[in-house]
Design a protein around this nucleic acid. Structure first.
Lengths: 292, 292
DNA sequence: CCCGTTCTGAAAAAAATTTTCCACATCGAC
DNA sequence: GTCGATGTGGAAAATTTTTTTCAGAACGGG
């Protein structure tokens, strides 16, 4: 993928690690509004980004251009090439894919799902659920089904960073009795169950409830039977034109919950986060963050 | 500007009868290559059209602009509007939640990420990557990092349903050499690496490439160093106002890739899907679908 | 906590762009 | 064929944009 005459977009990616904070500010702005954000005069571009003109000038030189005018011309050339290429005249400027491409059909369906999902989240239940997830006085158990196993894993990784006493039940239901042994009144069970609902998840939820455990359920728009038992349950719209279901909205709700949990637990867990950061530094397996 | 809300295109049509021969020359050139042909400097624009600078200057004044810079700005503004245009910015997201509720802030940030991500996917590379993932004559390896492990898992679960010969590398890098042993020329490695890029993933990618394996990378907007090596790489916008990154857009791109893969591989794998369905029925662990 | 390095933006200098002015060319009318 | 009106582009003037310079600020390492 290393081509001599690459697009400005590629040039930015290639040189991104060389860029300074202010320069990245412009790089990000340009990538987010490509190529329009780079086609005005250097003065205007700098003003819109909130940096000075020399910063822009220095950056385009790092990208390999002799000066801003050359950079400007390169962007323009790309724009022109796009028009003469596929004869579509009114094509989306920012998007390369034609309207009917799978990418666009997919984006449309998923955006719709996300909107519907969010419109249907009861905010009190959401806040209450976040409160449960942030309760470090009790243990938090997480479990998912066949497909949602990955989501449970994701939830576990993040919540474990936020708070102690988080346990991920492996998806093999044979091991669940062991975990049930340790569940106590006041604990919380975060559960994922989307269609092709799994009966052993329902059984687990029942047993957990009987032990005084609060159940937070993330399910699909048709609601898993676990919803009857759950303390709080949230519906995510998952349907896409495909043989399987999309979990984008599910992940989005999960992330929102994690975010709320973190916000709630922050005073208690800030130190925890910093310790985790230091631990990663020490292992030297991880590079510094890429940007802002 | 007499008409504040009319496009330059419309202005040209409106004033076309007032234009002189040379002026029409530029008008036609602009309409044919809109708006790129008007976004360079007046000198260049004039040169490309084959007329003099005063001609251009007089014409844009006839169109109602004070000068060429104003005309330039108007074109740019139209271009910019296109980017944010197709996205329906919903005024009220969650029906009941107040504007400032975390849910709404979150939805806003993530929607922005998704849009930008999709705008930046090169459709040819996407199709090519789907082709690689659908190639059942070779083995497909999947690997993720610390956080993206869950995404790799998700990808594995779905792709395994679509095609045979899919292998998920556990996130423990100690076991990777074993997998490398079995990698052969023509195989594909699907890799996730978002910031806090992991150096052992880079090493793995290098070794895989050396063995003739195609690397498909899903990374963040700043690009993992693996991108240098990858056959195809895709950038996902992951930034949210939080200490960690959102993987909603990442999952969305992944699902789109899975969807494309499935579409491509369908003739060969339809039977596989039906067999899988029957197997689930037989285990009796799963209930019938809940809805539509 | 200090020092050296790197980064950043205000302002001046340099280089362009845009505009204005004016002479020449073109065209149709008489 | 001459005249007047209109259209056109070369070149200078006015303006703006781009670049350079430099001093202060921010950052990171010891």
């Amino acid at each position: 993928m290393t081509q001599p005459s690459s697009t400005v977009r590629e040039l930015i990616r290639q040189h991104y690690s060389d860029l300074t904070q202010s320069e990245r500010k412009f790089a990000n702005a340009l990538l987010e509004n490509y190529p329009a954000a780079g086609l005005a005069s250097i003065t205007i571009v700098a003003g819109q980004t909130g940096v000075s003109t020399p910063t822009i000038a220095r950056m385009v030189q790092k990208l390999g251009f002799k000066g801003f005018p050359q950079f400007h011309k390169a962007l323009l050339k790309e724009l022109q090439a796009k028009v003469s290429g596929p004869t579509e005249r009114r094509a989306n400027w920012a998007t390369e894919a034609p309207e009917s491409h799978l990418l666009n059909r997919f984006a449309k369906a998923v955006t719709q799902n996300i909107q519907t999902t969010f419109s249907n989240v009861p905010s009190e239940a959401f806040d209450a659920a976040a409160h449960l997830l942030a309760d470090t006085d009790h243990t938090l158990f997480i479990v998912g089904g066949r497909i949602t196993h990955a989501l449970a894993d994701y939830a576990f990784t993040h919540l474990q960073a936020v708070r102690p006493r988080v346990i991920h039940l492996t998806s093999s239901s044979a091991t669940w009795p062991h975990y049930l042994l340790d569940m106590e009144k006041g604990d919380t069970l975060l559960m994922f169950d989307i269609r092709r609902y799994e009966s052993n998840l329902l059984r687990l939820a029942e047993l957990a409830r009987d032990r005084g455990v609060a159940v937070v359920l993330i399910t699909d728009q048709w609601s898993s039977p676990v919803a009857e038992i759950a303390t709080h349950s949230f519906n995510c719209w998952v349907e896409i034109p495909s043989a399987w279901d999309s979990n984008v909205s599910t992940l989005m709700l999960l992330e929102a919950l994690i975010s709320a949990t973190q916000e709630e637990a922050w005073p208690n867990t800030k130190d925890r986060y910093e310790r985790l950061d230091r631990l990663f530094e020490q292992t030297r397996l991880f590079r510094k963050p890429g940007g802002a």
